[in-house]
Amino acid sequence: MDAFETSVEATIARWFAIEPPNAAGKRLAAELAATISAFEALRGSLVFEDEPSSFEAALQATKEGA
């Protein structure tokens, strides 16, 4: 087990007292590295003038016929 997996499992155990339920759970927890990479790739690439803003307002602003 690498350091990342160990830290993910330790974090979940410390904050929630939940242990890995099975081997697939361990594998999917390790894949959080890909989630981090996806967020890293977006850093600095998106600039929104109205961030944060309401999703419900965006639904209204972009709706059919608006």
Partner: peptide, 25 residues
């Protein structure tokens, strides 16, 4: 197995995902 990693995702990531939902749309 699929729920388990959800406990390790930082709240700041989650809030970012939600706060950007409107602007992304």
């Amino acid at each position: 197995a699929r729920m388990y990693p959800g406990y390790a995702i930082p709240a700041a990531y989650y809030v970012q995902a939600l706060s950007r939902r409107g602007p992304v749309l």
